[in-house]
Design a protein around this nucleic acid. Structure first.
Length: 867
RNA sequence: GCCGCCGUGGCGGAAUGGUAGACGCUGCGGAUUUAAAAUCCGUUGACUUCACGGUCGUGGGGGUUCGAGUCCCCCCGGCGGUACCA
């Protein structure tokens, strides 16, 4: 007996089909080494960004991307691909630990519970994941390989000659000292100013600071000894190899800007009364003649040496003020320039002018050399600073084609703004008359030949701060002895964190693991490293592990890696130009410069070391658009506009949720949730159901007698079905799911209106709908007597002949305006069509009295008469 | 400020340079029903006309074209990212 309130009994058949798929492992993906693996089958790897299993469970944003990949995956399977479509959990990390602290439970317990809940929710949506490949970054066997990859980074350096990572063993063989080797490792220890959050009890990467600040945590700058990863060595490759990827241009640009390549030069300034010189980085060496002062970052190591005794106290006060300033103060309220004169003077190498050396917090220690040459006439910041402190402004670049004006001393010049565009050099000795580009090159040559500087490419990207002081992360597989670090043997992996009773932040930067003294203190004076890795570690390589999730001997077998990158060459389509392993990766934009940059970096290191065979992880990337609440605002608990997928599933069913998520609009677009839209697609599914089934007097669903086993005589109906097969297939390939669904609605309306529905055509339609609404279509198919699963059926082939129309509606325009529609033979020639058009009264109304100047005829579509 | 994305009916959105508004939602009308829900059929951009029809219409202004939502130039508005990177 069916629930009469439900338009179709989804609450009965959806769980039943899910159970069957699970029991039969319908969506298990055979891989190299499996008995049923067929290496001749082409592979397709479609990946979701795995969720971090929060206590709140799935929200409707998750199934948006997950449904899209599920449709693609199911479709590709039906097209004969061996589809890898896995799911897992990014279960380490700060949010998990914060949640555990809040609930007073161990993070292992809350994480396990959250994963259980996520798994239940995912399964209730009928996704065709290969659950045998499920993983969590907290699994000891996963941790083992995360740590192993860290040891690869630790054990290698970047060879500038070959432009790639190599084992440090090569250096040791060349009798490099321990210190020298440690100085070039891709994973290294450094005392650097880092972002420290007292209330989170950890340091944060540059990339993470904003996120946590926005959640209300405080962040401050502190010098601490930390593990760093030398991602900056890969800056250029990370930029260049973006070109080989099929990613949205916006995301590529975001990464390029984040890496921030600048071309310029280092200029060396001698300091009056000192032997040492200070170096600055500039992108405008052509303006060197216009430099009127030099600015160093307040924390620059030279400041103390060069400061004169008269200025010493002022300088120290300023330095202190800057050190205690949090980033927020510096960013928002303090655009006003501040600074202090050190009393020292630098010598401008091109004209021997004496330039006062200032310190100011608008110069960052962490970029370039931590010092700049100020050219106030041609840099907005320098200009502002010069005005504030009444420093001279000397113009050395002029707008191209401007009437020459020579500005002797700009102290009195009413220059209102700095001129920062390229132009022509003036007031610049041997550069005068050169364009900015030529002047740059000339100046760099001059600097190099006179030993005052050199060409330099500078990146904004900083090395990746890789250690955290928290508990819920992978411990470093490192021990210390006599102040030196060394790797633990691979045989000791995984190295798991010791149990701790209390993992609340202590407020000091001492890592939590240091409290576990028995774990830390090893025989013979060895001490374990007590920092842990950031959450990003696990997500940097999970896509590799899915290919070979239970391998105990390697993080991924060579065979699995070769097959799933399509590099095995023995099978499938010809090896494509793809450089990325994953064919399609779908997820949110928020990872543009974090996860997606880190994962590329790790992958390149593994590639350099010969552990993987492609230089990139993700060939094609698609960002799903954010789903907003019904009020058009971002969903949030405080606004009360959050939609819970569980509620939608119980009210309308999983298929309706899936359909709605796809029908809302283009995948990549930001769009609001509208419950009435869910009802709309639910009604559509009910219509499909009722084409095949009707209620008998007892309230049971019976096969409708409209369904008949005859050849389709209705040409129009057949055309719609084949048009649907064609369009749905094309649209899935284009990820244009909303229009695919529209077409299936049109097809369903045709079935509804038909008095006779041939079983064969209806089954073809159900097959096309299957990737979108797998439960409903399987259930209808079964009730119609189907013995196989639609999921295991080949994608239907449309018959081009069925699409042909012999007569078409020809659009008749006069001067580009629609005046008439004519039913005419599809292949009518221009003369026939023109004659037919001119025979129409409505057309003549607009052409009478005018001479026809031109006829534009698009056969089968349109005729435009220009009169 | 800079960078990116986006502006189409009451709403979500369709439209290889060729019928603007497919499909869905909402509203309205009808059928069915004792009645309602559900379902089915029709209708639903604005203005105008008794009607046939006509005029206008894709944020605004120009341009290219036989023809522009679509291509080019300028401007306006919204959303997101980023911010002293020399």
């Amino acid at each position: 007996m069916s629930d009469p309130r439900k338009p179709f009994p989804f609450s009965e058949f959806e769980p039943a089909w899910q159970a069957r798929w699970e029991a039969e492992k319908t969506f298990r993906t055979p891989g190299p080494g499996d008995a049923d693996f067929d290496p001749a089958k082409p592979k397709y790897y479609v990946l979701d960004m795995f969720p971090y299993p929060s206590g709140a469970g799935l929200h409707v944003g998750h199934p948006e991307g997950y449904t899209a990949t599920d449709i693609i995956g199911r479709y590709k399977r039906m097209r004969g691909f061996n589809v890898l479509h896995p799911m897992g959990y990014d279960s380490f990390g700060l949010p998990a630990e914060q949640y555990a602290i809040k609930t007073g439970q161990h993070p292992a317990i809350t994480t396990a519970a959250n994963i259980t809940n996520f798994r239940r929710q995912l399964k209730a949506l009928g996704f065709a994941y290969d659950w045998d490949r499920e993983l969590a970054t907290t699994d000891p066997q996963y941790v083992r390989w995360t740590q192993w990859i860290f040891l690869q980074l630790y054990g290698s350096y970047y060879c500038e000659v070959d432009g790639k990572a190599k084992p440090v063993g090569e250096l040791e063989a060349q009798r490099w000292s321990r210190e020298q080797v440690d100085g070039v490792r891709l994973a290294y220890v450094a005392d650097t100013p880092v972002w420290w959050s007292p209330d989170l009890g950890t340091v944060l990467a540059n990339e993470e600071v904003e996120e946590w600040k926005s959640k209300g945590h405080t962040v401050e700058r502190r010098p601490l000894r930390q593990w760093m990863l030398r991602i900056t060595k890969y800056a250029q490759r990370l930029i260049d190899e973006l070109d080989t990827l099929d990613w949205p241009e916006g995301i590529k640009l975001l990464q390029k800007n984040w890496i921030g390549r600048s071309e310029g030069s280092i200029v060396s300034f001698k300091i009056v009364d000192f032997t040492s010189a200070i170096e600055v980085f500039t992108t405008r060496p052509d303006t060197l003649f216009g430099s009127t002062y030099v600015v160093m970052a307040p924390e620059h190591p030279f400041v103390a040496q060069i400061t004169t005794s008269e200025q010493q106290s002022k300088v120290e006060v300023y330095q202190k003020a800057c050190a205690s300033k949090s980033d927020m103060d510096r960013g928002d309220l303090n655009k006003d320039k501040s600074g202090v004169f050190t009393g020292a003077f630098a010598i401008n190498p091109v004209n021997d002018h004496l330039l006062p050396i200032w310190i100011a917090d608008y110069v960052m220690m962490s970029y370039g050399t931590g010092a700049i040459m100020a050219v106030p006439a041609h840099d907005e910041r320098d200009f502002e600073f010069a005005q504030r402190f009444e420093l001279p402004i000397v113009q050395v670049v002029e707008r191209l084609g401007a009437t020459p004006t020579i500005l002797e001393n700009a102290g009195a010049t009413p220059t209102l703004l700095a001129f920062c565009e390229p132009g022509v050099a003036v007031n610049s000795g041997f550069l005068d008359g050169l364009t900015t580009a030529a002047a740059k090159a000339t100046m760099i040559d001059w600097l190099e030949s006179n030993d005052f500087g050199r060409r330099r490419i500078q990146y904004k990207l900083r090395d990746w701060l890789f250690s955290r002081q928290r508990y819920w992360g992978e411990p470093f597989p490192i021990v210390w002895i006599d102040g030196h670090h060394q790797a633990i043997p691979e045989s000791e992996l995984p190295l798991l964190a010791p149990p701790l009773d209390d993992y609340k932040p202590s407020g000091t930067p001492e890592p939590l693991l240091s409290k576990a003294r028995e774990w830390v203190e090893l025989p013979d004076g060895f001490l374990r490293e007590t920092n842990t890795m950031p959450q990003w570690a696990g997500s940097c390589w999970y896509y590799l592990r899915y290919c070979d999730p239970s391998n105990v001997g390697r993080f991924i077998s060579h065979e699995a890696e070769a097959y799933w990158t399509g590099q095995n060459g023995t099978s499938g389509p010809p090896v494509s130009s793809a450089v990325g392993m994953v064919d399609l990766y779908v997820g949110g934009t928020e990872h543009a410069v974090l996860h997606l940059l880190y994962a590329r970096f790790w992958h390149k290191v593994l590639f350099d070391l010969g552990h993987v065979t492609t230089p990139e992880p993700f060939q094609k990337l698609v960002n799903q658009g954010l789903i907003l609440g019904e009020d058009g605002q971002k969903m949030s608990k405080s606004r009360g506009n959050v939609v819970n997928p569980d509620d939608v599933v119980s009210e309308y069913g999983a298929d309706a949720l899936r359909l709605y998520e796809m029908f809302m609009g283009p995948l990549e677009q930001v769009k609001p949730w509208i419950m009435q839209g869910v009802e709309g697609v639910s009604r559509f599914l009910a219509r499909v159901w009722r084409v095949a089934l009707e209620l008998d007097p007892d309230g049971a669903w019976q096969v409708s007698n409209k369904i008949v086993d005859i050849a389709c005589a209705d040409k129009d109906l057949r055309r719609v079905v084949h048009e649907t097969i064609r369009k749905v297939g094309d649209d899935i390939e284009k990820l244009s799911f909303n229009t695919a669904i529209s077409q299936m609605m049109i097809c369903t309306n045709a079935f509804t209106q038909a008095t006779v529905v041939p079983r064969a055509e209806f089954t073809q339609f159900l097959t096309a709908l299957n990737p979108f609404a797998p439960h409903l279509t399987e259930e209808i198919h079964r009730r119609l007597g189907g013995t196989t699963m639609l999921s295991e059926t080949a994608w239907p082939i449309y018959d081009p002949a069925a699409l042909v129309r012999h007569e078409v509606e020809l659009i008749i325009q006069v001067n580009g305006k629609l005046r008439e529609r004519l039913l005419i033979a599809k292949d009518a020639d221009e003369a026939t069509a023109t004659a037919a058009a001119l025979a129409c009264a409505k057309v003549r109304e607009h052409t009478d009295g005018k001479s026809i100047r031109k006829i534009v005829y698009i056969q089968g579509k349109l005729l435009n008469i220009v009169a």
